[in-house]
Every structure is written in structure tokens, then in C-alpha cells.
Write a protein that binds this DNA or RNA. Sequence first.
RNA 1: GUCCCGGUAGCUCAGUCGGAUAGAGCGUAGGUUUCCUAAACCUAAGGCCACAGGUUCGAACCCUGUCCGGGACACCA
Length: 530
Amino acid sequence: MKKRIKAHISSQLDAAEVPVTKPKDSSFGHFCTPVAFSLAKVYRKSPHAIAEELCEKLLHGELFDKVEHLSGYVNFTLSDRFLDEFATAALRDGDRFGEQSEGESILLEFVSANPTGPLHIGHARGAIFGDVLMRLGRHLGYQITSEYYINDAGNQVDLLARSLHFKGRAELLGEAVAFPPECYQGEYILELAKKAQAHFGEAIFQPEADLSALRDWAKDEMMAWINDTLKEAGIVFDRFVSERSLYDRWDDTRQALEKRGALYTDEAGKVWLASSQKGDGKDRVVVRESGEPTYLAGDIIYHGDKFARGFDRYINIWGADHHGYIPRVRAAIDFLGYDPERLEVLLSQMVALLKGGDPYKMSKRSGNFVTMEEVGQEVGYDALRFVFLTKRADTHLEFDIDLLSKEDSSNPIYYVNYAHARICSLFEKSEHAHSDMAEVHLSDLGHDAKELLFSAMLLPEVIDDAFHTRQVNLMTDYLYKLAGKVHRFYTENRVVGNEKEAQFLKILAVSALSIRLGLKLLGITAKERM
RNA sequence: GUCCCGGUAGCUCAGUCGGAUAGAGCGUAGGUUUCCUAAACCUAAGGCCACAGGUUCGAACCCUGUCCGGGACACCA
């Protein structure tokens, strides 16, 4: 909608880019532009005089009812006819309302949690953020592939195997072994050890047992668990990439890097990536003295692999604690001959959970953190999604789990769902059917009705903004405000039996569409009845 | 020390590309239902936008510096 307005104004003004925004006060109109202020300098006239001239130029055509100027601003009011046509089109589009065909291909990597323990609440945030970004992007026509990188090589998974081994010896075989402090704690280790015993027999806990078999088995078990959790949350990945599986390509990658002078070997025999040449704070080890590659080596192969697949853009969602890692990966991409600008790393910040004002209890099962599973079961993923998405992913989030158990306006998901359910109930009560709405034409709408309709039709702009700025909170803000307008309208206007019943229903139908579709893009199913 | 995120109402946070009188929810105090779902609505109180400079027609927003809080700075992943 805004694009059409903008194009219209630009063409009338013969200017390339005209800023179009929403007025502070809705009584001024639907859109406004402060362009007279910047033109004032060019033409050496007062903003007021320029705004006045613009008004006359712009009033032609069927788009606007009113074009007025006020203290330098030019305010536009859309015509009923334009709003009506747009509403009919929106209802016809249904779930495809606001779809576009951008066409760029994007590889979106997120979660990528180590398969050494259950997902915690911080992972949940990144997972939901990534999932929603994907849904929004796909709606806009981006071809998005989602990927989970499994860190199934290196010390962490070895440590998982050792943890199980110790736990098995100590708890299941009753040996007096001291549990090393670096090992994973938490009851899930014992549960998994029991499972291992059932699977392998007691031999797996013998001192000389083959830990690599235990490791591979345990890693698969953990991934299955992680996957179950994600599935429950409605998150599905297109691909999983195993770090371990990449290492047979290390030699090729190494040669490619060497050819570009990216690597050097020190006296001790360690191989370094000269990442400081490409903006990193210092060089990084990629092969240890032992000849074993570091984690970075795997990530270099992985990113080389990603870029070789030829996507237009790459997005990684990482926990904020990895932010220092960005320059070295960018450097490696650069060394491999790819454009590091195509990689965008979004950071998902920490989550602090409270319950009744106090820090949420640590989970016994996980050892020292709250799991995604527990919170998902306690508050439900619809509520969890909505709350996580109300804040930008890159800022700290603190929230109280008790808020999500309340069933009133302090719980935003209820508020939004209730607005949707109310509209559904009106359609049940009314003689008019949803399918009749295209035949209904809007005219002589009051300010409130017009305002609600206008808000409801802004969904495409919001989807666009939310995706391109990566600020998914714009969606939740919008839905919450739209729901508020629905509630207000409902309170102030008796719909069924009203002489404008059909018209009101059409407006509410568009509102319900935007709420339902908006929630759908957040991975939430709108309630039709509460 | 370096880097990242933040500091806006009692609390949790919005604030678009710099634009009109800085907004919402919770909480607090009051009010609204013979009527489509009161899980709602309305009203009120509540602000040195951390601080100091700068940029300009205009700054919560951009720049510089300072203070405070959280996090990261591995041959772990």
C-alpha cells in the first residue's frame, strides 16, 4: 500500500525518493511526508509555502480524499474507494496477502547447539527467531534453506562420552571413581548412561571400553532429543550438517587457503590463519601441534561449503557469546575468495527467566540451566513465541514465566487471540458470510472504522519491515496494536443488527485476516474460540 | 585493556529514514455490562529520554567523551 502511495507522490513531484511516514496523530490522515522541509533548502522557500504547492499538485487522482498541509507537513487521507478495493483484494488473497516474489536465495543457519545436552532457554530464543525470520522471508518470496550445524567433532562430544562413562561406572556399576569437574552434570547424563547400559551392556563402562562408539551413539541420542524439542516448538530444518563429515575435505580447504597466503606454520608446527590481515584482532590457530584441526578449521570448511553452494545471501544466528568469533570467520571467507559481506551474523542475546519475581529455578535435569522443553511445557509455545518475539533478538530479555500463565491483557497472546475469536464469533452470529464480503462496498465510514481498516491493511508493510530490518518485534507490536483497535471497535460499535453490519464485518474480516496471517507467520495458530 | 548489548514512567519495554505534543503494557487509583465473549473498554496520576559537549531548520535517535549494568575476549565448541 505504502509503495503505491510513494510511487504516486514521487511521480507527481518528480523526485526520486520521497519519505512517507505515518502521522503522529491519526486525525491528520493516513500518511504524511515532511519532504517540504528538505525542499525548503533547495528552493529557498519556506516549508509552509512548499507544502501548500504540493497539496495542489497531489490532490488529483482517486487515491486521496484529502491532501492538507499543516506546519510544513503534507498529510494524506486515503479515499474510501481506494480502501475498499484494497480490502477486497486482501480478502481475496487470504493467506497470500502481502506475498511477494523477491527471489533471492538465502541460507539460514541457526540453533546449531552442541549435541551434548538439552536445548536451553537461550537456544529457544535463537530457534524461534530463526524460524520466524524464515517464515517471513518465505512469505516475501525468498528461497530460504534452513540448516543446523552439528558440532559432533572435537572435545565437547568426547567429553559427553567421558561423562557418560564416569557416570556409568560410578552410579551404575558402583565403582568409587571421582567425577571430574569438567564433565557434564545433570540428571540427563545418568538417564543417558542407563540407556547406554541397555544398549551396549555393562561392557561399555569398563575402563578400557571404546569411547568412540559411546560418543557416536550418545551424539545421535542427543540430536534426537534436540530434534524432538524443536519439533514440538514447530521448528523444522531442511538440512543438518555434521562437522565430523566435513573433515575429509580439510586438505582441499587447506590448499585453497595456502594458495592465497592465508596460512603459516610456526616453529612448534602449529598452523595459523592470518586473520589479522582481514580485520580480526589476531591470528588464529587452525591446526594444533598434535596435527588435530581446531573448531575454526571445521567452520572454515563449512562456510566454504556454504558459499560454494552459491546462495545470494547467508544468515547465521548465533548466541551473543560468539560475537568475537565473527571477524575470524569473515576473514576465512575472504581468504577463500568469497565476499564476506554476503554473510550476515545476527546475535541472539541472553534470556533471564524469572518466576514470581525471583530467578527461575535451575533445572535438575540439565544441571545448571533451564531447558527449552520445560518452559515450552509450562507456558506453551504459542505464548513463548509471542513473548520472545516482542523484543529485538539482539538485546537482553528478562521475563517472568508467571506472566504467561495469566489469562488477561498482561499476557499478550491472549489479548491478540481474543480479538480474533471475537471477530469469528460475530461472523457466527451474523447472517452475512465471510464469502459475501467481496460484494460489500465501503462508503461513508466513520473515523474509527476507517482507522481500523487502514491498520488491518498495513500487514504487508510490517512483514516487509520486520524481515528486512531483522526486527521481528515489529510483527508482535503490530498485532498487539491491531488487536487493541479491534477490541475498542468492538466495545464502541454494536455490529450485529447495525445498519452498517455488512460493512463493519468486511472491515473486521480484514482485521481477522491480518491477525491470523500475522500469527501464522510467527508460528502461532490463531484461536477461533476462547 | 579491547569488543558486543543496554541505560526512556515505580517495573518490563516500544519509539521507523533525524520530524509534529516521547508511547504501550503491567502495577496503582477510580469508572463501564437490560446489548454481539468484561480474557474487553474508558479515565487519572506517573518523564532531566544516564551525563556533558558537538552536528542542524529540527536530536531519545547521528558524532565525540564520561559514568553505570550485562556479556564476550581459547590451541572449548
